[in-house]
């Protein structure tokens, strides 16, 4: 098993989705969202009766436009290569999926801990775990950074902004 040295640049990540796959999946997601809004807008418009510009009129038009754009994206209409956007051109890739997942889970844990743990302890713990998960191994930074960030939040939010944390 290979390990990543903290001081060596990463090789280019393998794409999770090709440019075409990214385009089609983005189009499908957009089409799903647009369809839901369109359906809800039609219900709202139906409830508004004869009012031509009821609650559903504007979102309905917007959702219909989004649906058209989603279909165009799926079919690749209006794209240059894939797009002028370099990220999209290369498809979707995640250099360190484990790191992203770890950060996201740590964020969720921090949010859930807000009403359950002393907040500064939670912030210091979160900072320590996130730094460690993202490859930091210097103890001075792991501990010092965690305490400093919690102290900064206390100073800025609790003392200056008077937010009851």
């Amino acid at each position: 098993m290979t390990t990543t040295n903290a001081n060596t640049p990463d090789p280019a990540p393998r794409p999770l989705l090709s440019a075409r796959g990214a385009r089609i999946s983005a189009g499908l997601a957009a089409a799903g969202i647009a369809s839901w809004f369109l359906w809800q807008s039609l219900l709202l418009q139906g409830a508004a009766g004869s009012d031509a510009v009821g609650s559903g009129a504007f979102p309905g038009l917007v959702a219909a436009l989004m649906l058209l754009a989603a279909v165009a994206l799926i079919l690749g209409i209006g794209e240059t290569t894939a797009s002028d956007d370099a990220e999209a051109e290369e498809g979707v890739s995640i250099a360190h999926p484990g790191a992203v997942l770890a950060l996201f889970l740590a964020v969720v844990a921090l949010v859930l801990s807000f009403d359950r743990l002393p907040v500064y302890l939670a912030i210091a713990g979160f900072t320590f775990i996130v730094q460690f998960a993202l490859g930091e191994r210097r103890w001075a930074l792991l501990i010092g950074g965690s305490i400093a960030l919690a102290a900064l939040v206390w100073l800025l939010f609790a003392q200056l902004l008077r937010v009851p944390l």
Binding site: A26, G27, L65, A69, A70, L73, E79, A88
Partner: peptide
Amino acid sequence: AGAARGIIAVT
């Protein structure tokens, strides 16, 4: 971004 992506973003 491409036109379709731009319209999706705005809508």
